[in-house]
């Protein structure tokens, strides 16, 4: 099918996003996967904290998700949103209090895929933000207090999902087979 490679390339290591990504990675409408207040819109939000519980004001959170019917969106336009197309990708830099938030749809599948970048974080972190009441093999395999770190909770604003990079409430972070980074 394909030519045999003479050598197997090996993965490019990760490096921290550093403190200066703010003029490059965020963009207008980055965290608005749907216009706020539009039909079906929710607010997925939380705070990123370090090992002492201090908010992290220079983190970047990405959410990747299916649409409300559970389909994987295959539409372009995440960087220049048209207000109609649901692309399933959003990005939000944390504010001075470590908070992020997304105006988005509740996915038709059990979890949002979440990536976290920050100064002081040498490699991006991957996790899942599960909808309340979800259950699957990953959740079942975790002790209750660890499982709780992957669950969103409903609040007055929408769905809350805090990220703890370290410490007693450290979020369960994920690796995948074959990943290096």
């Amino acid at each position: 099918m394909t030519s045999t490679p003479t050598s197997t390339p090996t993965s490019t290591p990760g490096q921290t996003a550093g403190p200066f990504f703010h003029y490059a990675l965020p963009y207008d409408g980055d965290h608005l996967l749907v216009p706020p207040g539009s039909p079906g819109a929710t607010w997925l939000h939380g705070t990123v904290r370090d090992g002492e519980g201090t908010p992290v004001p220079d983190a970047l959170v990405e959410v990747w998700q299916s649409d409300a019917a559970g389909e994987v969106p295959r539409l372009a336009g995440s960087l220049r949103r048209d207000g109609r197309s649901f692309t399933g990708f959003g990005r939000c830099a944390t504010d001075a209090e470590g908070r992020y938030g997304f105006s988005t749809l509740v996915p038709g599948t059990p979890f949002f895929a979440v990536a976290v970048f920050a100064r002081g974080l040498l490699h991006r972190l991957a996790t899942r933000a599960y909808l309340p009441g979800s259950s699957d093999a990953l959740l079942d395999a975790l002790p209750a207090e660890r499982r709780a770190t992957l669950m969103t909770t409903e609040d007055a604003h929408g769905l809350r999902f805090d990220v703890h990079l370290q410490g007693p409430h450290e979020t369960v972070f994920l690796t995948y087979p074959g990943e290096a980074g």
């Binding site: 201090t54 920050a118 100064r119």
Partner: peptide, 12 residues
């Protein structure tokens, strides 16, 4: 990085 790296093993 001192307070910002996970100390628990990641879950595969």
């Amino acid at each position: 990085s001192r307070l910002r790296h996970p100390t628990k093993d990641p879950h595969q």
